[in-house]
Each structure stands twice: as structure tokens, then as C-alpha cells.
Nucleic acid binder design. Sequence first.
DNA 1: TGCGATTTGTACGTATGTATT
DNA 2: CAATACATACGTACAAATCGC
Lengths: 242, 242
Amino acid sequence: MTDSLALDGTGPLHEQIRRAVCAPIISGAWQPGRRVPSEHELMALFGASRMTVNRAMRTLADDGLIVRRRRTGSVVASAAGDRAVMSMGSIRAAVEAGGQVYSYESLARHRARATDDIAGRFKIAAGTPLLNLSWRHLADGRPAALEDYWINLAAIPEAVDEMFDTVPPAEWLATRLPWSKSRYVVTAVNAGAAMAKLLDLEPGIACLKVDRRSWRDGVPATFVTCLYPGTGHALTGEVAPP
Amino acid sequence: MTDSLALDGTGPLHEQIRRAVCAPIISGAWQPGRRVPSEHELMALFGASRMTVNRAMRTLADDGLIVRRRRTGSVVASAAGDRAVMSMGSIRAAVEAGGQVYSYESLARHRARATDDIAGRFKIAAGTPLLNLSWRHLADGRPAALEDYWINLAAIPEAVDEMFDTVPPAEWLATRLPWSKSRYVVTAVNAGAAMAKLLDLEPGIACLKVDRRSWRDGVPATFVTCLYPGTGHALTGEVAPP
DNA sequence: TGCGATTTGTACGTATGTATT
DNA sequence: CAATACATACGTACAAATCGC
């Protein structure tokens, strides 16, 4: 079994080795917990140096397919089941990917201090100065999403001077908060009267609601709620063996 | 600017170098497109070997923070915006994480041949033998989700003999289809009459619908639809700098 | 308790290949 | 064509963790 591993001769050697060891794992031939050949065994098997074998195995470990431990060796990681990931693109990208023309319009822009309600959801002190922005995104002129931004001015003071009349907040923030931590919560809600009117829907229609919070240096920076008509929008994701 | 990079002295050298280069990127000091010091410059800066510097930079590239190109060198990758990922755990894990007792009950199990409708959604030939399984997941005895499985018996023939009376299909499949490719589509739907009854809801309540398709060796293997009451369940995800 | 053996982790130096300007 | 900068690969060495005796 161990000896049935074979290189396919295409591409870099460390990639060939990675694929050779990956194959029986993703096929299920090697069940979780099963020991993977040691680096020395693979060196002998493939005639490669330890650095090269090590790189292949380290990549498999980074991808979560194996677990490595000193002395005891590497074993196949437990099944993938709950490692599914979904990518959430920008609204603009989603609209344009569908071949439609993207546009947006500002619904509101005002400063406020955090009420108890907002402060609770935002996990900040009541009274913190905030900037609230509401937008409607359009696809071919028809409502595609509502977006409600709360920006913590204590964390991003430079937002005060930005009118957001030429740049939507998502893009403006992308350059101020690159790679900041953020959390998403996706739920389904029934459209209320106001929401239905803005999205041009019947009240009660199911909508996707995506709440997103981001932090800058550990301080809550933005709180965004995005609403999509249930029909006509979907979050999609893919899981694939590395 | 380039010279302000500094090691923190903790942990492996390649990790220190990675962090040192990572810091100005995630802080926004180095905007997308900005050139990252070459491996030779970093060798001189930190007094490390090229192998070590290379490993640090390769890791940053794997994580998507920089883009590496021959001759022109590495540059900061464009902003993270649309790289958000959401992990989708199993229903059992979600229920138990909330401190509730998980249970499930089978609603149906029967063999069928793919109708045109199913064949179209499943992307298989009409008439293909299928196994259909329906489940209701319970949290503390109350309906928490409905799950509807279609298993392609042409792809997973051994499923015919499995009654799934002791193991739910998700767990049974995890050992047959480890790491198989799968795609998710999340939408919001209004509960229909049957759905509302099974989930103990008022008809029309918004629900999250998660469709998942998986493949084995490129052949469609399973098609799963999972429905959650909009209130009481959410998909959550996190994005964090690597 | 300690000690040696095994296995992975890290880091070095070096060499050659390859894509791009 | 030459120079640059990354990509791959070899060999080596020592360190750290851990298991069995």
C-alpha cells in the first residue's frame, strides 16, 4: 500500500510528491488517523532530498490534510466535513459578474452617537460618535441590495471628512482597513414594509441578511448590515481538495 | 520606510521575517501594488539565508498578501475585500455548540430514478439510479433543520446497502467522500406549508436554504438541500489576517 | 529517573533553472 | 542577449519533542 505511491512526472518534484501522498487521502484509501510514511521513507521511495520531501509534507499539513508530530510521525487528519468555506464577494462584483450594470445611490448620511441598542450590537460604549451611511445598490437600475453602515469615528476619525459621494464606503474602507479582522453572520429575514419598499418587493418576502463587523487594532471599526432579496441573490462557496 | 522593518526576536526566523513584512501590509502602510523588498534585500536586512527569506515570502504569497513575479519582484496584493470565507459546520456541531441536545429522525428513504427536474439540478442523465433520504434534525427535541439527500448510486453504489438507521448520511459519507469537491449555494426562502409544518413554523417565515453538491472523481455524487428556520440559525464566518 | 532513538522543525550554503524585462 | 529575481533542489547540521527502555 505504502509502496503504491507513484510520481506522475509533471511539474516540480515537491508538487509531485505532495500529489502522490495526497491521492490516497482524498480518495479515502487512507482513513483519518492512518500513519503517513515518514520523511525518510519518502526520501528512499522517491529518491528526493529531505528538504524537498519536507516541503511537500509541510504543504499537506498547512492544507490540513495531515497532522505532523515529532517522533510519532504524520497521520491523516480527521475528515474535512466542517472545513467548508464560502467566499463573499462585493456586491459590485456579483452584479457585474452577472453581466448587469452596477450603480448605487446614497439614502442617508448622518452623524450620531451610539444608542444603547447600537452600542450593544457594536460592542462599544454608548455615546461613542458614529457615522451612519445607507446605500441602495442597483443592478440594471433595479434594487439589488440595501447596505447600512455604521462607522466608529473613534476608530476611523478620517471618515468624518469623507462625503462618500464618489466612492462607496466599501471601497473607501478597503484602503484604510486592509486585511482587518471581520466576522460575518448570515440569516434569513422577512422583508418589513420599509425594506420591501426600498427593494421593490412584496412585504414578507424572504431576504438574506448579512451582518459584518470589522475591527482595527482590536477596536470595533465598522458594523454593516446588508440585505438581499431572497430570490435573485445567493451566497456561493466551494470546497475543494487543495 | 523599507528599513523600518524589524524582527521581534520571538519564534522561528522565517516567521519573524514573515511578520515583519506582513505588518505594514495589514496596517495599510504599504498599499496594494507597492513593491516588497526583494529576497536579496531582505537577506541583507535581516542577515538570513535566502532559503529562509524565501520561505517567509512564499508563505505570504500562499496567504494571498503578496504576489510574486520573476524579474519584477513581489508586490502587495490587491485588497482583501472579496476573500471573505465562511466555515459551515455540521448541524450536529452547531446544535451541540449551543449547549443543546442533538437528535435526528428519518423522514423518508427510497430509491428513485432521476426525473428531468432532478437530473437538471444534479447535472446527471435522466434515469440515473438515486437514493433519496430525508431527515429532520432536532435541538432539545425541537425541529432545527430539514435535510434532503440525493445520492447518486452510479457514483456511490455501496450506499444501496446502507440503511442509515444508526449513522446519519453526513457522517457515513464523510468516510467515503473525504475531501471531495463540493459547492454551496445559500439563499433565503419563505417556508411553504409542508416545510412550515415539519419545522413547526408559521407558513411564510423566512428560512435559510443551503444547497450543496459534491462530486467524486468529477462525477456528481450527492445533492443536499438543508433548510433552517431563519430565526434560530445563522451561518457565521470570520476573516482574519493570516 | 535518565538516556538513546526516531521524527519533525529550522536554518544554513550552494547550485541551477526559468520567466521577464 | 544580458541582468534580475524568483523557483526548485540538493546536501548538511543541529534543535526540539517524544516514545520506549
